[in-house]
């Protein structure tokens, strides 16, 4: 019983220290990672390029929705260059 108790006490100390250490490391390294990502690979804002001719032909809210949808689906790889109504 005494031996079991002392092992349990040791596990209490080791366990809590380990959990705190690992989560502390995750917090520290996570913050370093955020700094590095912010510095070297900040998100590039995708600006929609829409032909002037189409600007007047479409509701700005609809255009914003289309641009957002294209941005999400293509993960920012595509740009909207013109919008034409399908026949």
């Amino acid at each position: 019983m005494n031996e079991g108790f002392s092992t349990a006490l040791m596990l209490l100390a080791v366990g809590m220290i380990t959990v705190f250490t690992i989560l502390a490391l995750i917090v520290i390294v996570g913050n370093i990672l955020i700094s590095l990502v912010n510095k070297f690979i900040p998100e590039t804002k995708i600006r929609a390029v829409v032909k002037a001719a189409t600007l007047g032909a479409i509701d700005p809210r609809k255009m914003a929705a289309i641009v957002s949808a294209v941005d999400i689906v293509t993960e920012g790889k595509a740009k909207v260059t013109s919008i034409t109504k399908a026949e």
Binding site: N31, I34, V37, P42, E43, E75
Partner: peptide
Amino acid sequence: KPIKNMKV
């Protein structure tokens, strides 16, 4: 520290 590229 706002995150500038959440996806990455």
